[in-house]
Write a protein that binds this DNA or RNA. Structure first.
Lengths: 232, 232
DNA sequence: CGTCAGATTCTTGTCGACAAATAAAATGCA
DNA sequence: TGCATTTTATTTGTCGACAAGAATCTGACG
């Protein structure tokens, strides 16, 4: 049984952002499973506000593809398209490479501190075998690398891809338990060092290897899952 | 004096899309110049509807970066950041290359007909020395190439970049008059032929050359414009 | 003459309500 | 019982209104 959540009295104008952030997290963490319908009045009651700010939050989520809205019909959480995953992997790999390369060129000293902070969190998550924290801090680290690259166009696409990946990993995160991807920690260290050294070619190579590793990991989850489905 | 525009009675649910499309076009064509404030009640009167659908359209536009909204303050048309244009050129060039390469691999016969139709329009626009039509059909052609590549992630970033470019070219479109870029027609023909031949490496080379050409053209406009500003 | 506080106007953010459109249920008929 | 059609119910799209902030104006005071 879920205890009735209560939201503190909020400032004017903070309503949409609150709803947007909460719904976004719940979608990415699969608390709201893909394909599940979203009822506006229900959300309005839950957040204790009118339908108008709920609606605006849903429009924003639809703009990022996290929610699909059928005209005059209920809007629902976007499905995960497992059939066209290769387009996702392709774009993700390219963005890994491009953002890391740009970070090598355009980063400033302050950026490196941020990267190391994220890396510390990631390392701690691996140590604690907390798969969810790993997913989150991995995303934050690479988003920070993209910010150090200072190209807002790549950044926006990349965070969208990273979030989609977060949703995908959440789907299979149980599988993280059998073998700890401690290699990721070392790979991250190497990437950060290459960025600091401003070695563009090395960054590209490391980013590609890192991306391939993640793609393989996800594909392994999926194939295992499909085998399980077949045996049922 | 602008004649009072009148909108036909619309179906339920078509309001936001209408407002979104009209505003988007006006922003991209610089009818609404960058930085100009947007008044909701004014738009509501103009479109003959309530503020609610206007608001949703603005939220969508804000999601695409075409409009910037300050809290509790007026929202305004997004500025063109001339200082960070290199990030735009970088992303544009990469997307030109990637989408053309993917089109070479994944296109189907029906796609080629669409490409040729757009190319015909572009050729006609060049013939007629209609700079605005050239800008629009050039954008449509490359968007169609991206669609033939069948990667929605690249497509969404690319159309955003192409639209931003449309706005940029509109700024300087007068300069198109002095020398007709008839080379573009030939370059487009070559690209389409390379896609049809499924020659990935050639597509990459042609796309890069094409992108470089466009970037140089825009930079020429800008430097010329800046020189004019200096002489004032 | 400039500056600051208070009052006013103006724009936005939010609300409750109503009508259209669709889905679901109920009814009638073969 | 099965199917088509009407009726009901639910949910969305839109509206007009109100209140909170911000910007502007006004006037007093230094």
């Amino acid at each position: 049984m879920t205890e009735p959540e209560t939201f503190p009295e909020r400032r004017r104008g903070s309503g949409v952002k609150l709803v947007y952030d909460v719904l976004r997290d719940e979608i990415l963490d699969l608390v709201l499973p893909p394909g599940s319908p979203i009822d506006e009045v229900q959300l309005a009651e839950r957040f204790g506000m009118s339908r108008t700010p709920i609606r605006e939050a849903l429009v924003r989520l639809a703009g990022e593809g996290l929610v699909e809205t059928l005209p005059n019909r209920s809007t629902m959480v976007a499905n995960i398209d497992l059939l066209n995953l290769h387009t996702f992997f392709d774009a993700l790999t390219l963005m890994y490479r491009v953002t890391t390369r740009l970070a090598a060129t355009y980063h400033k000293p302050a950026d490196l501190e941020i990267l190391r902070a994220h890396q510390a969190k990631f390392s701690a998550a691996v140590e604690a075998q907390d798969a969810l924290a790993m997913i989150a801090s991995n995303r934050d680290l690479h988003a920070a690398i993209a910010e150090a690259g200072r190209n807002p166009y790549y950044l926006s696409l990349f965070v969208r891809l990273l979030d989609e990946g977060r949703r995908l990993l959440r789907l299979y995160y149980q599988s993280f338990n059998d073998r700890l991807p401690r290699e990721y920690v070392d790979e991250h260290e190497a990437i950060i060092a290459a960025i600091e050294a401003r070695d563009v070619k090395l960054c590209d190579r490391l980013a590609k290897a890192h991306a391939d590793q993640i793609v393989r990991q996800i594909q392994k989850f999926i194939s295992r899952d499909q085998r399980q489905q077949l045996t049922l």
